[in-house]
Design a protein around this nucleic acid. Structure first.
Lengths: 154, 154
DNA sequence: GCGCTAAGTTTCATTTTGGAACTTGATGGC
DNA sequence: GCCATCAAGTTCCAAAATGAAACTTAGCGC
């Protein structure tokens, strides 16, 4: 199967991966959340080739995750839209997992202070209804309204 | 920069992406959470080539996300380890984003019932300390113990 | 022992990367 | 005004990864 087809599946994971499911894209987003906006800055900070960076930014703009804006004639910057900012929980979940499982005993490279309460926080996933922490075995996935075809897998 | 190098950065996002940051890998994990365990089942459900599937499963086993176990002589299944199960919040965060932004008016393909309270839930990211919902602007990232070098970006 | 099944491996053409140089349209200095 | 510079890409090519499909290998069922 090709990736264009994967994006058409009735699965939010597949559709999301068709947009952001690539290594560089996540790192681009990470840096965007840290304040990076310009082509050359992304390129330098990430050491990604200009070629790939160009293609990824284009895709993210098309998807509506970045807005490309001229900050002076012929010079552009890439700013997260609301759609893009909404990816923060994904980044945080990824970070939390990496901190837990890949730190090699060194501790988290970054820690997060929550403005609201002032404490250092661990991003935690909870049920929207009862506020309880959620793990894989606490959840029953069920067919929702957006499901068309279900070959046991999608 | 090559991907092996990216995995060595002092950044949990980069390190995590070096392991799971690839489109197929996320879909493999999605299906693993839905109960899939065997090579041919993954292959059929995902329509990924056997070639790529083989390589990805190998990497996930090496990383410690799957455990490869013989269920009879010469037949194996891939089961999530605790490290693997801990990726569930990432999957849920991805799903929640896709449900919000990519459903094209059709509604979520899958909905999640929380066993604890019985309600249909939206996975929500909160601060571990105060329980408040967290967005990008609520958080201040700061250097943590695992940070060695910080070229403004990593 | 024959055919089936599961779990891969191999082969090869096509696509995608990585690396590096080239292009283009403002500025900025003098 | 004119030359140098800088930012934001594009182009080119070799190397690596992917997709598609056929092939391999070992145990099972009968």
């Amino acid at each position: 199967m090709k990736w264009d087809d994967v994006g058409n599946q009735a699965c939010s994971v597949a559709r999301t991966m068709a947009v952001i499911g690539d290594r560089w894209t996540m790192l681009i987003l990470r840096n965007a959340f840290m304040g990076t906006r310009r082509f050359d800055h992304f390129q330098l900070q990430l050491s990604v080739t200009r070629h790939v960076l160009s293609e990824r930014l284009k895709r993210l703009v098309d998807a509506g995750i970045f807005r490309k804006e001229a900050y002076k004639p012929n010079r552009y910057e890439y700013r997260l839209t609301q759609m893009g900012r909404d990816l923060y929980p994904v980044l945080l979940a990824v970070t939390a997992w990496g901190d837990t499982w890949l730190d090699e005993g060194r501790g988290a490279p970054l820690v997060f202070q929550h403005k609201g309460c002032g404490e250092m926080m661990t991003p935690t996933l909870v049920c929207s209804e009862c506020g309880e922490k959620v793990t894989a075995s606490d959840v029953i996935p069920m067919a929702g309204p957006g499901l068309q075809a279900l070959p046991g897998s999608k």
